[in-house]
């Protein structure tokens, strides 16, 4: 469960302060896939980053599975990210010089998993995204859609309870976007809560719930 209460985020404290979130509150309990929509600058990505422990809180509270994020130090946040969250970013965030296999394996390396577990999970994840035949290819050799599928495989390799996807289809054509959204939906139906940030309403409609933000505030929150 994720609880967000009166969350604010202000960049550049002082005279040049810019408020990105102005008191956001909601709870995610039963929905398996939640989409955050809104125009550019509405604060949806900032919200996702804060829930994922990538960004600090100015005020308010974020609790993930009964653990408040405020007050955690960098090392604790790193642990939180490694164990609880899988990230999928618009820009894939892969290491181009590594093979697909090593890129997917990376969270397990960080999490000190043993060799056998690594091998098994990497192959499972790649199979899930349909890239098991490209395990030994370098990430730089893949197409954009394939790269995003690799990044999804990497995000789920640790079997995290939450998968945060920030504009995962932002750099993809419609065919690849459909591929990626299908994978995300499948994951949400298999014990992974997917939190999706998108500006594409077609993608958002796949989710169970859509939360709309504007100027750092939740202006709509509805089940689909």
């Amino acid at each position: 469960m994720i609880q967000v209460a009166n969350l604010t985020k202000t960049y550049n404290q002082g005279a040049a302060a810019f408020p990105a979130l102005n008191g956001v509150s909601f709870e995610i309990t039963n929905e398996n896939m939640v989409a955050f929509v809104g125009k550019s600058g509405s604060g949806k990505s900032t919200l996702l980053h804060i829930m994922g422990g990538l960004e600090s809180i100015t005020s308010g509270e974020v609790v993930v599975d009964d653990s408040p994020l405020k007050g955690l130090n960098q090392a604790q946040l790193a642990d939180f990210r490694n164990k609880k969250i899988g990230f999928v970013f618009q820009s894939f965030f892969l290491e181009p010089s590594y093979s697909v296999y090593t890129n997917v394996e990376m969270p397990l390396i960080v999490g000190k998993a043993d060799n056998e577990t690594r091998k098994q999970r990497v192959l499972e994840s790649l199979k899930l995204v349909g890239l098991e035949t490209k395990a030994q290819n370098k990430a730089s050799e893949l197409s954009g859609g394939e790269r995003q599928r690799v990044s999804i495989a990497r995000a789920i390799i640790n079997r995290p309870p939450y998968l945060f996807a920030d504009e995962p289809c932002g750099n993809l054509d419609s065919e690849n976007s459909a591929w990626v959204m299908r994978i995300l939906k499948t994951l949400s139906l298999n014990n992974t809560k997917v939190l999706l940030v998108t500006h594409n309403m077609d993608d958002a409609r796949i989710a169970d719930r859509i939360i709309t933000l504007k100027d750092g505030l939740v202006i709509a929150d509805a089940l689909t």
Binding site: L54, Q74, A75, A78, D79, F80, R81, N82, K83, F87, F93, L94, E95, M106, P107, V110, G111, R154
Partner: peptide, 16 residues
């Protein structure tokens, strides 16, 4: 930096 940033995002601690 991008590579290190990715590792950090995945939960790698600074000292590692």
């Amino acid at each position: 930096t991008p590579f290190l940033g990715m590792l950090k995002a995945l939960g790698t601690k600074d000292y590692v």
